[in-house]
Design a protein around this nucleic acid. Sequence first.
DNA 1: GCCGCCAAAATATGATCAAATTATCGGAAG
DNA 2: CTTCCGATAATTTGATCATATTTTGGCGGC
Lengths: 236, 236
Amino acid sequence: MNIETIPAPNPFAETETGKTPAHQSVYENLRAMILFGDLAPGQAVTIQGLVSELGAGMTPVREALRRLIAEGALTHQGNRRVCVPELTPEGVDELGFMRSALEPELTGRAAHRMTAQHIDTLRAVDADLNAAIATGNIGGYLTHNYRFHAYIYASADAPIMAATVDRLWLRFGPSLRVVCGRFGTSNLPDKHADLLAALESGDVDAARQAMAEDVAQGTRQIREALSDGNGPVSSD
Amino acid sequence: MNIETIPAPNPFAETETGKTPAHQSVYENLRAMILFGDLAPGQAVTIQGLVSELGAGMTPVREALRRLIAEGALTHQGNRRVCVPELTPEGVDELGFMRSALEPELTGRAAHRMTAQHIDTLRAVDADLNAAIATGNIGGYLTHNYRFHAYIYASADAPIMAATVDRLWLRFGPSLRVVCGRFGTSNLPDKHADLLAALESGDVDAARQAMAEDVAQGTRQIREALSDGNGPVSSD
DNA sequence: GCCGCCAAAATATGATCAAATTATCGGAAG
DNA sequence: CTTCCGATAATTTGATCATATTTTGGCGGC
């Protein structure tokens, strides 16, 4: 799962020894598992379970958990239980509103700055994405779809907004997996072609518009999947 | 004012669910210090310094730091240094955009739900705020201004959005203190009267508008204070 | 069915190791 | 002789771990 191609500010890649702290790798591991649906909504997460599963010490695991809880990727379920949050219809609403407000803006800013080379990279990511869709590879779809968006937002030169949006994706992730598991990869939202065309022709407003539609489609899909099932998505 | 829980043998409430873990109180402490400007932008924060200063253990301090870093209230400045982030003009721009996008929406949602009693509480907070402004009490201004906004957002029944906005305030906080220290409390933004009136009359759109203006004023004030000084606000 | 014990899990502590910044000292150049 | 620069040592700080302590939830006895 190499998503390190995203040109994001990495404050931990300073030491030339190439060693990342244990808490950092635990965090990245867990984060990817949540973001790409390896952990189902509602699933409980225990410290000691992770200690034995990841072979890490207790303190790093604690810190990674604390961080993910702060980001909303995990929730403190009352007593001392930690679990992946289940997305309610109201939650989808909030996330959808915020995504619609922020992601087109980030896209517009990115459109101003992206060079032809950047767009080529993005097109490659989109090719991976389409391949995953064609083969029904859900994990690949989630990964590459995230990479596609993350790459754009990282190009917007707006780190605070990008980090904020990233956290919203962390909340969508687990449910996206469930939705895909229910409906397959057949009619997934894909305004990416429009978006790429707009970026290439330098049409900032069209890029914004395409992203807005992509976000709206994705939000609608999750909302429908939720109202289709019984209440909040569950791991069944 | 808080009565400490005396570690005495209590046969009835041996499992008092109201006690806060050490990492939690450390977190709240630090958070308040950042939010209300007790820590200046750029100021370094060390784990061991906090351990000795707050009298807490190392692990709770670590977890609180990790949490605050995840929330953007602190930043990992390169190698192993943690400090309060300095707000750049670009940062103000991002924060201003997001606040303008989210806070009016939260206000609108709150306006639908607030009862007369809620509005009374809010009015009391605003009175405290005005008193602080009148006496030039900067700490009081920051505290009550935050309380005013936080109360509204907590009433909006949109926890994810409220948490997101809260993080934006965490980033504004340290610089607000600096701005006030520079300009005093003379002409601070105050669309609160308009806002209260709109809430009372049930005019949702007017409430949104008032909040939008309040946010815009606050953002502009910080932006001007930054461009007035030399570059990012610094403590030294 | 209720109360109290037990085990498991989380919280918290302090020690220990590693890394980095800082301080100091020595040498070379002006 | 003074000053500046670089290298090395020392101190400070962060990361990790093993372990003690507390709490929770379950289980068995009454």
